[in-house]
Simulated scan of single mutants.
Amino acid sequence: MDKIIAFVIQLAFIALLVILGIVFSKGKGSFLIAGYNTAGPEEKKKYDEKALCRFMGKLMFILAGCYAVIMFATVLDRTEFIWGGIVLILVICVWAVIYANTGNRFRKRK
């Protein structure tokens, strides 16, 4: 019974990540991006909002895939894959922060 509850909760979380991925991939939902939503109007004009949202959409799909690994590992009682999925999520999040904040990738071209 506990595995079923864990499976349903994890599946709901994966569905949330996929829905966010779809929203971001359409170039919408910038108000959900931390840092961008708190920037002033002048600062927001410097960034390509659609490109930033598309990047976040791809990131959500990747994180959903990583969490799917954790979900199946939980059902199969494979602790090593659970830890592998957690490490993978952490590595991808660190990479995404570094990627997004270097190289002015999302700045508008003049």
Rank of each mutant, 00 (worst) to 15 (best):
A96G: 11
I89M: 13
G85N: 09
I9C: 08
F55Q: 09
N37A: 10
F106R: 05
E42C: 04
K46Q: 03
E42S: 12
A39P: 00
K45P: 10
I9H: 08
V23N: 07
M71N: 06
M56G: 14
A51N: 10
A64K: 08
L76F: 12
E43Y: 06
I89R: 02
A34I: 00
D48A: 08
F81K: 00
R107F: 09
R107L: 14
I33T: 04
C93E: 11
M56I: 10
G40K: 03
T79Q: 01
A51T: 02
V23P: 07
V94K: 04
G57P: 12
T38Q: 03
M56L: 08
K58S: 15
V8Y: 06
D2G: 15
G21T: 09
I14W: 01
I5D: 14
G27C: 07
W83D: 05
V8T: 08
T79R: 00
F13P: 13
F72Y: 02
I82F: 00
L52S: 11
G35H: 01
M71K: 01
G40C: 05
G84H: 11
V75T: 14
Y67A: 11
K3A: 04
K44I: 04
T38N: 06
G85C: 11
W95K: 02
T74V: 00
S25W: 03
Y99M: 10
I4Y: 15
I86K: 01
R107Q: 13
K110S: 14
E80D: 11
L59E: 13
A6G: 13
E49G: 06
V94T: 02
K45G: 01
I70N: 03
A6S: 15
L88F: 03
L59W: 04
W83M: 13
I92R: 03
A68D: 02
K50R: 15
I33A: 11
K3V: 00
R78F: 07
G65V: 06
I33S: 06
W95P: 05
A64L: 12
I92K: 12
R109T: 15
G57T: 01
K26R: 11
A51P: 12
D48C: 10
V97W: 01
K108Y: 04
V91Q: 05
G21W: 10
Y67L: 13
L11T: 04
R105W: 08
L32Q: 02
R78P: 00
K108S: 05
C66R: 00
L63Q: 14
C66A: 11
I82A: 00
L88M: 01
I92D: 05
F7Q: 08
C93A: 12
T38G: 12
G57K: 06
